[in-house]
C-alpha cells in the first residue's frame, strides 16, 4: 500500500500539487486521472522519487520515502516496476536483454536462471517470437508488452504506469489494460496508472483519483463515476458524447 499525506509541490511560483492525501491499495489498479496540467505526472514522479515533495510524505508499506537513506531508497527502487509512456526500452538491447536487465543488475541469478525467468514473463505478456528482436523491430503494442514484462520480471511490489495506452489502437489498448489488471491481481502488486483515457477508467478503474488544478477533486471506483454528482468529475468524464449517453442510460436503469 502507498500512502500519500498532504503532498505539495511547486515549481517556482506555480503550485502544482496542493495538499494531496490518498491511498493506493495493494492488489488493485489505482488510476490517477485528470486533464493535462492537472498535476498527475508530477504526482506520479513524486511517487517514483524523481521529484521531492515540498511538503507532506509518501510511504511505501510504512516506509516513509523522505526518511530513507540513499541506499534504502535504491533498495526500495528495486521493488518498483515502471511502464513508461513511450515504453523506454533500451534501443541497443534485444527484447530478451531488455526484460532480463533488472535481474542482471540486481540479482545474483545465473544466466540460465535469468533466461528461464525472462521466458516465463515474456510468455505471461503473450509475446511470441520476439525474444531476439530489437525494440525498433516490433510494434508499439508489443513494445508496451515488453515494457510490462521488464517491469514485472523482478517481482515488484509496486507497479507504476504512465499513460500505458498512449499511441495504441483501442483494441490493443484494452488488451494492455486487462493485462495490467490481471498481473496486478495475480502478483498482488500495488499498481498506480496515470491516464486520461476514459476507456481505461471504465475497464480497470478499481480505485480512481481525479486531480483538478493540483487538488484531489474526487476519488472512488468506476461504478461510483456513474452515480457521483461531483461537478468536476462529471465535467471531465462526460466531455465525450459517448459517455454522456452511457450516463443517461445508466440513470434510466437506476
Amino acid at each position: 500500500m502507498i500512502e500519500v499525506k498532504n503532498v505539495e509541490k511547486s515549481f517556482g511560483e506555480s503550485k502544482v500539487l496542493k495538499g494531496i492525501t490518498t491511498t493506493f491499495e495493494t492488489g488493485k489498479t489505482n488510476l490517477i486521472i485528470g486533464q493535462s496540467g492537472s498535476g498527475k505526472t508530477v504526482l506520479l514522479k513524486s511517487l517514483l522519487g524523481i521529484f521531492t515533495p515540498d511538503v507532506g510524505t509518501i510511504s511505501f508499506d510504512g516506509r516513509i520515502y523522505s526518511d530513507l537513506t540513499s541506499d534504502e531508497k535504491r533498495e526500495l527502487r528495486t521493488e518498483i516496476g515502471m511502464v513508461f509512456q513511450g515504453s523506454a526500452l533500451f534501443d541497443s538491447m534485444t527484447v530478451e536483454e531488455n526484460v532480463g536487465f533488472p535481474l542482471k543488475m540486481f540479482t545474483t541469478k545465473s544466466a540460465a536462471e535469468i533466461r528461464d525467468r525472462v521466458n516465463v514473463v515474456i510468455q505471461r505478456v503473450n509475446l511470441v517470437d520476439a525474444n531476439h528482436k530489437k525494440p525498433s523491430e516490433i510494434s508499439g503494442g508489443m513494445q508496451k508488452r515488453v515494457a510490462i514484462a521488464r517491469a514485472i520480471v523482478n517481482n515488484p511490489k509496486y507497479l507504476f504506469c504512465d499513460e500505458p495506452n498512449s499511441g495504441l489502437d483501442p483494441k490493443t489498448a484494452i488488451v494492455i489494460d486487462n493485462l495490467i489488471m490481471e498481473i496486478t491481481q495475480e502478483y498482488n502488486i500495488t499498481t498506480v496508472i496515470n491516464t486520461h483515457d476514459m476507456n481505461s477508467v471504465m475497464e480497470i478503474g478499481e480505485k480512481i483519483i481525479f486531480l483538478k488544478n493540483g487538488i484531489l477533486a474526487w476519488e472512488g471506483t468506476k461504478k461510483d463515476i456513474f452515480k457521483t454528482d461531483n461537478e468536476a468529475i462529471v465535467d471531465f468524464v462526460y466531455s465525450s458524447n459517448l459517455f454522456k449517453k452511457i450516463r443517461k442510460a445508466q440513470n434510466k436503469d437506476l
Binding site: 522519487g49 531508497k73 518498483i80 523506454a88
Partner: peptide
C-alpha cells in the same frame, strides 16, 4: 541525449541504477 529524450535514463534511475 536520445536516451534522455526517450526516457531510457529515467527508466535506469527508477530501477535504482
Amino acid at each position: 541525449g536520445t536516451m534522455r529524450v526517450t526516457e531510457q535514463i529515467d527508466a535506469l534511475e527508477v530501477m535504482g541504477v
